[in-house]
Design a protein around this nucleic acid. Structure first.
Lengths: 210, 210
DNA sequence: TATATATTGTTGCATTTGCAACAAAAATGA
DNA sequence: TCATTTTTGTTGCAAATGCAACAATATATA
C-alpha cells in the first residue's frame, strides 16, 4: 500500500482486532466480479486495499457509465454520491476491499477503541486525497477545447512525475471518457499536437517538448 | 447554519473553549476583502460559517479564475488542492470564517479534549458533502453538449428542490463558468430549449416542462 | 496458436461551439 | 437620483467537435 493507507499507524496484528470491532469486512474479489451491487441502498464505505475496480452507474435508460475508476487507496460509498440511479462496484482486476458501516465509523463505538481515532484520521486523509484528484479532473474538464484539456492534463502528470516524459495510466478510450469528449476528436487533437511539435506520443508514452 | 456544521453537537458555550484549544480563529470579513492571500503556503483549513467567498487562482499569466464558490458550510484548504499557482480566498459578501491548523486537527492534541472527536466527525461530514457537490459538477461537465449539461444540471436542481420549478443560485455568467463553456453559447442553448418547449426561463426562474 | 474482442488511427461531414462585437436591461453605488 | 458597472441577450462567422463508419493493430482468451 502507498503512504496514505486506511491502516496507517496501526500495528499489523492489531488490524484484525480492529476489523472485528468495526464490524468491517476485508474480502478478496476475482476480476469482473461484483463487489457491491446496489451501493445507493447500503450504508457502506469501502476502500480498495489493492487491485482496481470501477464505480458503475446504471442509467434509467439502461446505459452503463464508468463514474469513477477506483485504485489502491480509493474510497467509495453512498455518502459520497447523490445518484438516484443504481450504482455498483465491479472489480477490474483481482482485488481486496475493506468495507465499513458508515454510521459505525462516524458514531464512536462504546468501547472507544484506540484504533478508532487512527482510522478516522486516515479516512480524513483519504478524503482529502480524493478531493485533490477530483479537483484535478474538474480543472481539466473546465478547459474549453480538447487541446487545452490535454495540455492541462499533461501538466498535472508532469508535476506528478517530476518529468516531461511519462506514461499514461489511461488508454485513449478511457481518456476520452475522462475528458468527456469524443474519442476520435481526442485522437485528432493528439495528432495535431504531435504534428505541431508540442509533444511526442508513442502509445502511452508521452514526452512534452515545451 | 445548516444541518451539517463544524460545530454540530457542541454546546454553544463550549465553542469558545474549543477555539482556544485548537488555536483556531473565528474572524469576520467585510465584502471584497482578502480572507487568505497565499493559501498554498499555509497549513490552514478554513470553513465559511456564514456569508460567501470565492477561491481564486492566480495564474502564471496573471489570469484570475474562480476555482470554487464557497458558501456557508464550505470547507477549503491547501490539503484539498494541488496547484502550484497562487490561491487566495476573497469574501464576496460580509462573512465569518473559522480557520484551523490542519496538523493540529489531524494530530490529536495532548489534552485529547472531548471536542476534538466531534470536530473531526463534523469535518468528515463536510468533506463527504463537498465530494457530493464535486461529483455533481463532474457529472455536468462530462456531458458532451451544452444542452446535455443544462439538462443534467436542471435534473440535479429538480432533485434538490423536489420540484420542476426552481431558482438558479448562479447567474448566467457564473453558470457558463461552472459549465466551462462560452456564455453566449450557453444563452443560445437556453433560448433553444425555451423555443423547443423544454423549459420556461424568466430570469433565474426555471420551470421544466418535461 | 487461432480466434474473438478491444483499442487505435483515420476521414468526411453535419452540428455545435467559441469568439468578437454590440445593444439593451438590470444592478450597484456615489 | 444619476452615472457607472455588470449582466443579459443577440448575431455572423470561423473553428472545434461529435458522429458514423471503417481498417489496422494490439490484446485477451478459448
Amino acid at each position: 500500500m502507498n503512504e496514505i493507507s486506511i491502516f496507517y499507524g496501526i500495528e499489523n496484528n492489531d488490524v484484525k482486532k480492529m476489523l472485528n470491532c468495526f464490524q468491517s469486512k476485508r474480502i478478496s474479489y476475482k476480476k469482473d466480479t461484483t463487489i457491491i451491487s446496489n451501493l445507493a441502498n447500503t450504508n457502506v464505505v469501502g476502500i480498495i486495499l489493492n487491485g482496481s475496480a470501477n464505480l458503475i452507474r446504471n442509467d434509467y435508460n439502461g446505459n452503463r457509465t464508468i463514474i469513477e475508476k477506483l485504485d489502491e487507496g480509493s474510497i467509495f460509498g453512498e455518502v459520497f454520491s447523490s445518484y438516484s440511479d443504481e450504482l455498483s462496484v465491479i472489480a477490474t482486476s483481482d482485488c481486496e476491499v475493506i468495507t465499513f458501516d458508515y454510521d459505525h465509523v462516524i458514531k464512536r463505538c462504546k468501547k472507544s477503541c484506540p484504533y478508532h481515532n487512527t482510522l478516522i484520521d486516515n479516512m480524513l486523509q483519504l478524503l482529502a486525497k480524493k478531493i485533490v484528484i477530483m479537483n484535478n479532473r474538474i480543472d481539466v474538464l473546465t478547459k474549453k477545447t480538447i487541446r487545452e484539456k490535454l495540455l492541462e492534463y499533461f501538466s498535472i502528470l508532469e508535476k506528478e512525475n517530476l518529468a516531461k516524459k511519462f506514461e499514461l495510466d489511461l488508454n485513449y478510450t478511457e481518456l476520452a471518457d475522462y475528458f468527456g469528449v469524443d474519442r476520435s476528436a481526442l485522437m485528432r487533437e493528439i495528432k495535431n499536437l504531435k504534428e505541431e511539435g508540442f509533444i511526442e506520443a508513442k502509445g502511452k508514452n508521452i514526452t512534452l517538448l515545451f
